[in-house]
Amino acid sequence: MAHMMRNMRVPPNSASLAEAKHKTLEFFRMCCRSIPEIMEIYNLYDVVSPSQLRSAVAAEVRKNSNLTNPKVIDMLLFKGMEELKNCVDHSKQRHHLVGKYVVGNQGLVQDLGHKDQGSSNFLKNFYSGNYF
């Protein structure tokens, strides 16, 4: 797999939406196949499970599910491939992956809700700021 990605180059443009869709699925499969290797390289066993990583990747892909322009999809696929290559080649460090795919967009300070359980919206807003 790694050899597949070693010589990255811009693939030819997709002719149709169907082709772009197919490429996307291929890309997702490639990601799923490299996940065990990534877990190994970055030693992620204690923070995340392979299935969680898979759903993180799937969420990234689904974020762009509304796109219909094959050129745009190709561009995003190229960027995704680049990212995957960086991960597999150990071009990143552990915290890059932890930050982007394990902690996610919510950030490190996560309101898990156990403290504000049952409190009103007013109180939740109050804790976060004066302007609401």
């Binding site: 009103s120 007013f122 109050f126």
Partner: peptide, 22 residues
């Protein structure tokens, strides 16, 4: 800092005597 009435309203909820205005 927070507005005065908001502090009191929040305190009332934490103390379990929630004031009926938001």
């Amino acid at each position: 800092a927070r507005d005065d009435w908001k502090i009191i309203r929040a305190l009332s909820e934490v103390a379990g005597v929630r004031l009926p205005y938001d």
